[in-house]
Design a protein around this nucleic acid. Structure first.
Length: 859
RNA sequence: GCCCGCUUGGCGAAAUCGGCAGACGCAACGGACUUAAAAUCCGUAUCCCGACACGGGAGUGGGGGUUCGAGUCCCCCAGCGGGCACCA
């Protein structure tokens, strides 16, 4: 008995694939293409189990499609810009570039040890000038097209670290690192006009039929189209009208107040000489912005004393409040409130004692009863109905009333129908060093001047310091000083760099022609794009995927690409989880610090008791991590890959267990023993060709099992049912282990079944498959073999076994000839002892016979 | 609070179109092999009643419904997980 030497095997097959450049691909219009892409990793240091799962999934798809005859593009690269590199520089004094490229080298080696079918010649790193120079060129194209622009916007400013913070870096109003109170500050920033494509991005979700429904829904909600009306209220004593957006203009006669955002220009203006209002606004800006916090938070307002004239009721005016629940970024930053028909408005009205006038009569309620009743209590009526208390709208339905209001507002020049989106323009400015420099120059006389194309890339300087707070680029002594390309005068480079989501918004296109002198080679991109199967985590459901969809559109406009939807298929995988452990002091423990003994779970070294927590997504902070490199060193890549594909459906979370890995390891060795150590008769290579026919008994049974397995595994792989496919493979393996017939037809059947099984495991366990392919005496590489095809002749059985029910309850089974008539089934079913027993002398009222499925006797 | 998802043996799960619930694996138990252990192989395994066998009953989070037949479809409820934008 020989033991499978995975170390030697995996190293040598990887070397063979590399030497023969098996996975190097080129565009070939004569062949169908298939582009498999997993979300590229951030080079954080070492790969984690989430990567192993993600890249195994993609590799199985890539290898399977390759075997099916597709010209498969399967590239890899690095999302290499970002804050962690700067944090490492601050904490350890290493330069971001050094740290990043070091991490890339480690992670590339680790990924290569997994045996992935990647064309490494196409590797890219977004921090390389060869990549970001093209990003700069595209930025300039977008600037010309009016898609990139500059405006002021509010940011969280940390006055100690001298830097802008993300929302998640602001904890209880203080900076995460400095602990300083955060200020809201207005900064001039660069934006990409994604809102121009809001409708297209929404509409085209419909054609992404190979995306998870859930992701499409999330994007739809994020874009958030709402149809309504803009209404301009005349403000008494002011020249400027107050413009309001509403979706319920039908309830205009029920309006009892207007409210504006604390950030509304009118609020800012009024606060200038109203200290109380200024204090209220300051308080609002300290309030959390999460929906959950707000929902439970008290609705508060500040009466400005200003009054807005009702557009249709002469002499009536509405108080204008500054309110903590009105957002500046949505609509016009101002609303009118109709308390009877909006819960939030009702809460507000009750608090400030404002009128609550119902203007919608609920469906099916008598008008007289309703008006005589208690009116609106603590619950607003938000449903459909008939307009009341609304002058010329009375008697109309909601939609009709909306149309009428819009028409009359239009006539009076006080408003019109409007559509707004929740989606906001994409702010790409970052006051950071380790990112793609924005290629513009600020000149006192010429304004914003693009860096001339022939001067690209604007390269990041190497000699920056991280020992002082603030943006190292802005603090660099010489980098930003430059002559204006237009007038030659003294000018200053833009020191903002781009959001790293920009880097990842077009990398899929760059892979098509990774060394081209332009961002993308159109010929290559037109052949390879779109990505046929994109695979990654659900955490990127909105931002990354939406930005990429927008970016592709922008690139199409600028002539770089021909496809607007970059990913025709998307799969979102679940997380890798592990139990959590804590010692007696409540400190997290690594799994390998924990031992299971007769006394329960204890600390491996000290023997002290350990409390076991629930399984959670692997994270460094909770220490419930298992290092892929250690697993691959102990069990090999094929075992790790098999475990990733077994048991759990890929879209669900996967529970990492040592026992599960051991199980996968046992299967790898069992396969090796059954095939490589086989001593039973085995026909010569090639002797299994052609449809045999005439087999009987065990040989026929095993051939049927084999062909059925081919059909089912193929179907499972097409549908991402990898756990099912693995179960099918194990079933065939079990059948082959029991198959001990030794005549000539058994020898042929064995040859065919072994060959097929080895081909079927290829995508999941590529090294073992190559080793077994060779062991079976075949020439060439398994990776070059076509995917097996099931012979339909073996997929049909002579007989079928039917369940027989009495009143829906199983009482026995019958075996009848396939395609037999109903009468035979009925007679056989009624003759079953179990059925006779259950009938207990009663005559059957009805017998339902579903051919090849079931017989149900009804009494 | 709103939106989305999930809930099947001790555990991960399968059941693809409404048709024999629990395939496949993990853990467990019994046996073979071994001086012994590991590895391997064979077997048992949803629960309850039944000494065994034969058999019977219950069973897919809970309650109701549609159907000859429901894990699957419909309604209500509960629990768990995730997301969140005060969206006018």
């Amino acid at each position: 008995m020989t033991r499978y030497n995975f170390k030697q095997s995996e190293t040598s097959w990887q070397a063979t694939w590399r030497e023969r450049n098996v996975f190097g691909v080129a565009a070939d219009p004569s062949r169908p293409k298939y582009y498999v892409l997993e979300m590229f990793p951030y080079p954080s240091g070492r790969i984690h189990m989430g990567h192993v799962r993600n890249y195994t999934l993609g590799d199985v798809v890539a290898r399977y499609k390759r075997a099916c005859g597709y010209n498969v593009l399967h590239p890899m690269g690095w999302d290499a810009f970002g804050l962690p590199a700067e944090n490492a520089a601050i904490e350890r004094g290493t330069s971001p570039a050094e740290w990043t490229y070091g991490n890339i080298a480690t992670m590339r080696r680790q990924l290569q040890s997994m045996g992935l079918s990647i064309d490494w010649a196409r590797e890219i790193a977004t921090c390389h000038p060869g990549y970001y120079r093209h990003q700069q060129a595209m930025f300039l194209a977008f600037l010309r097209d009016g898609l990139a622009y500059r405006r002021e916007s509010w940011v969280n400013w940390d006055p100690v670290d001298n830097t802008v913070l993300a929302n998640e870096q602001v904890i209880d109003g203080r900076g995460w690192r400095s602990g300083a109170l955060i200020e809201r500050r207005k900064l001039s920033q660069w934006f990409l006009r994604i809102t121009a494509d809001a409708q297209a991005l929404l509409d085209d979700l419909a054609i992404l039929d190979r995306w998870p429904e859930r992701v499409r829904l999330m994007q739809q909600n994020w874009i958030g189209r709402s149809e309504g009306a803009r209404i301009r209220f005349v403000v008494e004593g002011q020249s400027e009208p107050l413009e309001v957006f509403t979706t319920r203009h039908d309830t205009l006669f029920g309006a009892s107040f207007c409210a504006i955002s604390p950030n509304h220009p009118l609020a800012t203006a009024l606060a200038a000489d109203n200290a109380d209002l200024a204090a209220f606004i300051a308080e609002c800006s300290r309030l959390g912005t999460s929906e959950e916090a707000i929902e439970t938070a008290e609705k508060r307002g500040f009466d400005t004393g200003l009054r807005a004239r009702h557009p249709f009721v002469a002499g009536q005016s509405l108080p204008i409040y500054v309110a903590n629940f009105v957002l500046m970024d949505y609509g016009t930053g101002a609303i009118f409130g109709c308390p009877a028909h909006d819960q939030r408005d009702l809460d507000f009205a009750r608090k400030y004692d404002l009128a609550v006038l119902p203007v919608i009569l609920p469906e099916g309620v008598d008008a007289a009863d309703f008006l005589a009743g208690p009116g609106i209590g603590d619950e607003a009526y938000v449903g459909n109905g008939t307009l009341i208390n609304s002058a010329f709208l009375d008697g109309m339905g909601v939609d009709e009333a909306k149309a009428e209001v819009a028409r009359r507002l239009g006539e009076a020049g006080l408003g019109e129908v409007a559509v707004t989106y929740r989606l906001r323009d994409w702010g790409i400015s970052r006051q950071r060093y380790w990112g793609c420099p924005i290629p513009v120059i600020h000149c006192a006389t010429c304004g914003i001047v693009p860096v001339p194309e022939d001067e690209l890339p604007v390269v990041l300087p190497d000699d920056v310091r991280f020992d002082t707070p603030g943006n190292p680029l802005a603090d660099h002594p010489s980098w930003k000083h430059v002559a204006c390309p237009t007038c030659g005068g003294e000018a200053r480079r833009e020191t903002d760099t781009m959001d790293t989501f920009v880097d990842s918004s077009w990398y899929y296109a760059r892979y098509c022609s990774p060394r081209a002198d332009e961002p993308v080679d159109r010929g290559e991109a037109d052949y390879w794009l779109p990505v046929d199967q994109y695979i990654g985590g659900i955490e990127h459901a909105i931002l990354h995927l939406l930005y990429s969809r927008f970016f592709a559109r922008a690139m199409v406009r600028a002539g770089y690409l021909g496809v607007e939807e970059p990913f025709s298929g998307l799969f979102t995988q679940g997380m890798v989880c592990h139990e959590t452990y804590k010692d007696e002091e409540g400190k997290w423990l690594f799994p390998d610090e924990v031992a299971r003994t007769a006394n329960g779970v204890v600390h491996a070294r000290t023997g002290a008791p350990v409390s076991v927590g629930r399984s959670e997504s692997m994270s460094k902070s909770k220490r419930n991590v298992v290092d892929p490199e250690a697993i691959i060193a102990t069990y090999g890549a094929d075992t790790a890959r098999l475990f990733m594909m077994s048991d759990s459906p890929p879209e669900r979370d996967l529970e990492w267990t040592d026992a599960g890995v051991e199980g996968a390891w046992r299967y790898v060795n069992r396969l090796w023993r059954i095939i490589a150590d086989n001593t039973l008769p085995l026909a010569a290579v090639g002797a299994d060709a052609g449809s045999g026919a005439g087999e009987t008994g065990a040989a026929l049974a095993i051939l049927r099992e084999t062909h059925r397995t081919v059909a089912r595994v193929t179907d499972d792989l097409e549908k991402f049912g990898f756990n099912r496919a693995v179960a099918r493979l194990r079933e065939l393996t079990n059948a082959l282990a029991d198959f001990d017939a030794s005549d000539a037809s058994a020898a042929r059947a064995r040859r065919l079944s072994f060959t097929v099984l080895v081909k079927l495991i290829g995508p999941v366990m590529p090294h073992l498959a190559e080793a077994l392919w060779q062991k079976l005496g075949n020439d060439g590489l398994l990776v070059d073999q076509p995917w097996p095809v099931a012979d339909p002749a073996y997929l049909v059985d002579d007989t079928v076994r039917l369940g027989v029910q009495v009143n829906g309850k199983l009482r026995g089974t019958i075996e009848i000839a396939a395609g037999g008539d109903e009468e035979t089934s009925r007679a056989a079913a009624l003759a079953l002892p179990g059925v006779i027993n259950a009938l207990n002398g009663r005559p059957p009222r009805k017998v339902v016979v579903v051919p090849n499925r079931i017989v149900n006797v009804v009494v």
